Simulated scan of single mutants.
Amino acid sequence: MSPSALLSRLAWINYVGLGTLGVVALIIFGSYTPEDERRWLALGVIGVLTVLLFLDDRLIRRPIVRHSCYILTALALLALIALNANLTGFVIIGFLLSGTAMASLPPRAGYLWILLYGATTLLYTTLIWPGNMQALLSALGILAGYLFMGATIDAQRKAERAEAEAQLLLAKLQEAHMQLQESAQQAEALAVAEERNRLAREVHDTLGHRLTVAAVQLEGAQRLISHDPVRAAQMVATVHTQVIEGLNELRRTVAALRAPLSAEVNLPAALLRLARDFETATGMEVELRLADALPTLTSAQRQVFYRVAQEALTNVQRHAAASRVRVTLQQGDDEAVRLTLDDDGCGLPAMPAPGFGLRGMTERAQQIGAQLQLGNSALGGARVELSLVVGKAAVASEVT
């Protein structure tokens, strides 16, 4: 309990009890005649009760010590009986002790002490009115008042406990709300980052591919323009076609954010068109080995296979110095759909640099639960393989 809470509790309970005991002390002290020395003894007993009432239950943590204090209060009541103290003051003290017991002890122990105080009161009324039914009736009425006092204090304690629990729950809810807001902000940031990565991959795989082809064609046209203008013109026309295609793909990506691989077009047909465009643009020989029948792939899966093939061909054109490329799409005995691209170029370096294209292919493969592997090709160059077990593939969202 904090110092402010303890002070509040003392102010509302103990200070009220102290004031009441002061009034009781005046009542009992004034009930004796001036010559009666017992009034001073009664005043001393009330002083002991005052000290006991000020011993807050939070200051006395051991239950045995706490019950010992209440035993002392019972002995103090017996001392007041022996001193023939005023009954009204005695009853008021009984009410104070009943409320204090219920406030500082568990409910069952508190009610037991209230019954003990009631029995003490019955003893006193019996001594005052021996053999009179009035003694019993008065004691029962006073005991009912003690119990009512205890029940009121118990209800107040339960209400305070419920309020404390409500405040604790409110604090936890506020903390959970703040954590939920932070999680929502993090999720939003992750979604934005994922969308940026997706758009970056789209621009890289579409416009980057077209611009790479255009750059190679322009270099060739520049070398041929002096002695073979017809061939140079053909290359420029190819560049024009690639630029138009790239512009159209960029518009589709930015405006509609649609995948260039339509859901109605099957993967082998799309790869055939990609290979023929690549042959026309680069002059490299592209050997296609496409399976006649493949398992049904989702639009997202077809999109990934197409983009990996596109990026692999772009890398061949940029880095491989190759003259031949083999593109294979088939289903293995393990029910995995495999796309492999082999070239006869210079092969992979000892420590391949993790460029954006390779990272983009890896991320796309992870989106559909596929595996991407790089290695050396039997043709002498590099090999890119994308494999997907269709029956065990992770459910992927549509790539838009």
Rank of each mutant, 00 (worst) to 15 (best):
G118H: 11
T152S: 11
L169H: 02
A76T: 03
E398F: 03
K392S: 14
L137C: 02
R62E: 15
I46Q: 07
A322E: 12
R364S: 07
A79C: 12
T238K: 08
L143C: 03
A79Q: 10
A191G: 01
L116E: 06
H67W: 05
L147P: 06
L49I: 15
E287W: 03
I60D: 09
Q179A: 12
V399K: 01
L379K: 04
A214Q: 06
T126V: 09
L313F: 05
A79G: 15
A233L: 15
M149V: 14
G110K: 10
E311N: 10
L97D: 07
C346A: 12
A76V: 00
L49M: 14
E194F: 10
Q317L: 13
G357M: 02
L83C: 05
I13K: 07
I27Y: 09
Y306L: 09
I142S: 05
A275S: 15
M361C: 12
T152W: 14
A269Y: 08
Y70G: 03
E385I: 01
A79S: 15
A82P: 02
L137K: 10
Q373R: 13
L247W: 14
G22C: 00
E363I: 08
Y124G: 03
A214T: 14
E182L: 08
A171V: 03
L348E: 04
N14Q: 15
T362H: 06
D334F: 03
R307S: 06
G347W: 01
G220K: 14
M284A: 09
E398R: 10
T33N: 09
R302Q: 14
F305I: 01
L358T: 10
D228T: 07
E175P: 00
K172C: 06
E165D: 11
L168N: 11
L261A: 00
V16D: 14
S397I: 04
L122E: 02
L140N: 08
P107K: 13
